[in-house]
Design a protein around this nucleic acid. Structure first.
Lengths: 143, 143
DNA sequence: ATGAGTGCAAATAGTTTGCAAGCTG
DNA sequence: CAGCTTGCAAACTATTTGCACTCAT
């Protein structure tokens, strides 16, 4: 719990640092992300807001901003839905997920090709590299 | 060119092996994939069919089947659009892409976490693992 | 001839955009 | 008080589904 409010606090600090305004809606959205143990879609984030704290459109817009500023990381589900989770704003703790195709449970996967990818990409002359990598499977319970 | 019709031939052989029927539409869709040098969305595949060879819905349905049978591989764009490219049906030649965010040009990236991922996933008790991994950047021309 | 495959129309999911009003710094 | 941020309505893109018809095997 203390861990969670700490995560929210540090995310809010990042908002400030990045010149984004601190609103109730943004705090609420970050709070939901901090409580989630799996990546969340915009819609899922929205339904988890207690008592309609903001519009779904606002969730989309905020998440987009957060990603742009590196406060939140983005991935995709097998069906193309975008999902979001709290980052650290500094690249630390960058990770991916292994998500159960059936129940949605996700495990953190500390496995990343980021650095090799950068090398290859620069070799081709590409810049501003980002990557999406998500794994899917059937968890032991759903199997 | 010979290379391309060869690719189509071998994909058609796989269709047969997997018990899927060979139709003009399916041949046309595979042909488009064989000519493409970047992953294609269903819509892009459809517009590349010469003279309205089939309905867009059919493209969606065929691509889905092909992926299920391992004849075609699937990835996602940053915006969640699904994209497809010809696989080898046997896991050989599995690869990923580095796609230019601006012009859509793509480079093949022979870099894959497949095996490490399998290991980690099995450790968690997950089975039937798949993964999506795509990289994006700005190519030297668009930069 | 049987059921896989197709086309057309319509529904759905996820996301984006325009604009006027509200609130933060 | 300037302009970033939000809400509401509406548009839009990508994809899926239902159903009757067609064609490969």
């Amino acid at each position: 719990m203390g861990d969670i409010s700490e995560k929210v606090e540090s995310a809010i600090k990042l908002l400030r640092k990045e010149g984004l305004r601190i609103t109730e809606q943004r705090k609420a959205i970050l709070n939901v992300l901090a409580h989630a143990d799996t990546p969340l879609s915009a819609e899922e984030n929205h339904v988890n807001l207690t008592t309609e704290q903001c519009d779904l459109v606002t969730v989309y817009r905020c998440l987009e901003q957060f990603v742009k500023k590196g406060i939140v990381e983005m991935g995709v589900r097998e069906n193309g839905t975008k999902v979001y989770w709290l980052g650290h704003g500094d690249g630390t703790g960058h990770h991916h997920h292994l998500t159960c195709r059936k129940c949605g449970r996700a495990e953190r996967v500390d496995l990343c090709v980021g650095s090799e990818l950068e090398k290859i990409a620069h070799g081709y002359g590409y810049t501003k590299i980002t990557h999406v990598m998500e794994a899917f499977g059937l968890c032991p319970i759903c199997r």
